[in-house]
Write a protein that binds this DNA or RNA. Structure first.
Lengths: 194, 194
DNA sequence: TTAATTATATTAACAATGTTAAAAAAATGA
DNA sequence: TCATTTTTTTAACATTGTTAATATAATTAA
């Protein structure tokens, strides 16, 4: 018995190996052979535990979201205002993905051709940043007496702009260094909450 | 003589073939062999005219930007307000890339590992949407008496949010149909200009 | 314990990719 | 016409994902 436990263990080995590779060198090097070697197995073994290489890669998504959440929680939190808190979360969010651009590609840019069962994950991804800022936004709305409609628009615009900014920056479409990006985040956050 | 003319002609054949493929089936099918077959050449010939397959793909970018611009110009332009015009451009912009998601990937999501000489293109890409809306924004700023700083922030936030929206939508991260997306564009545009 | 069975892992192989070098074909010039 | 240069193609290699056949390990039955 306990087949499932051992099976999950081996799956975990592959997932950890894939995560290490993504963190260190990006998605491009996450090949069946590379992952298997790092996990200590033959490349074919991977296919006993995952439908295909995309299946494996998508299994990393949830873990990375957790890591990002932790990363943000561990950043300094000394803020006086609600807007400051939103800004801190936004900056940490950006910092995380600039550090690991491969993870950004995985979460937001990877095409969703994969198996239908994984589509549940996509909903989580789309709502990920909102889940980080939901409480703060609620309070901001209360404090500033925004209507529900206005709050929703501000929240969405802010989140989408941040994601757009990261896409542009990570893929080299803005001629901007890291400090400039932080300034942009400040401006955009200020505008959304003013 | 006129070597360059003939050379440019052949380059054009490859570029057209690549563009056709991207339009019809997306980036994934743009392989050296596929492109060459469609262009009427052997796959190795491609390497006499382009450094590598990425080089060829990047040569399509400028053409696609022109096409997008034309597409937007040909959309109905009957609007009463400046905000209406900005909204129309934004919607057309979205419509174009939803029709050709592969082009969006090419312009905004493709990693910029390519040759340094091509990096000039990236600046153009980053400023592409701004070049479509620049005049309209100027007038909006004048009419609404926005400060230069406020105008800039509104313009950037609006553009980035639109791009973020498209990334989310094209890659299936929002659980939203096309009409819902248009509604979001309306809200976000309204917020940025109000 | 040992033989049979089941579960797991690996090797070998295939097709498709990018890319290059050598060979062939075509164009050009004397 | 023949030599040279330019252009194109064929052949080949390495690297992908993936599968089928094989080997190994673990488990179960006698």
């Amino acid at each position: 018995m306990d087949k499932t436990i051992q099976e999950e263990r081996v799956r975990g080995f592959f997932i950890e190996a894939a995560k290490d590779l993504i963190r260190a060198e990006g998605l491009a090097v996450v090949t069946a052979r590379n992952v298997a070697e790092r996990a200590g197995y033959s490349y074919a073994t991977l296919y006993n535990y995952f439908h295909d290489i995309r299946d494996l890669i998508f299994c990393c998504i949830e873990d990375f979201m957790d890591e990002c959440r932790e990363f943000i929680d561990h950043e300094d939190k000394k803020t006086d205002s609600l807007e400051g808190k939103l800004l801190l979360i936004s900056k940490s969010f950006a910092k995380f993905f600039i550090q690991y651009p491969g993870i950004f590609g995985l979460l937001y840019e990877q095409k969703s051709n994969a198996i239908a069962t994984k589509n549940s994950n996509f909903g989580k991804i789309g709502a990920f940043f909102d889940s980080l800022t939901n409480d703060t936004w609620k309070e901001i709305g209360k404090k500033n007496k925004f209507t529900a409609h206005s709050l929703e628009t501000r929240r969405k615009t802010h989140a989408l702009a941040l994601h757009g900014m990261l896409m542009m920056h990570i893929n080299g479409r803005d001629n901007q260094e890291y400090p400039g990006l932080l300034k942009e985040i400040e401006k955009c956050t200020g505008f959304a909450t003013e």
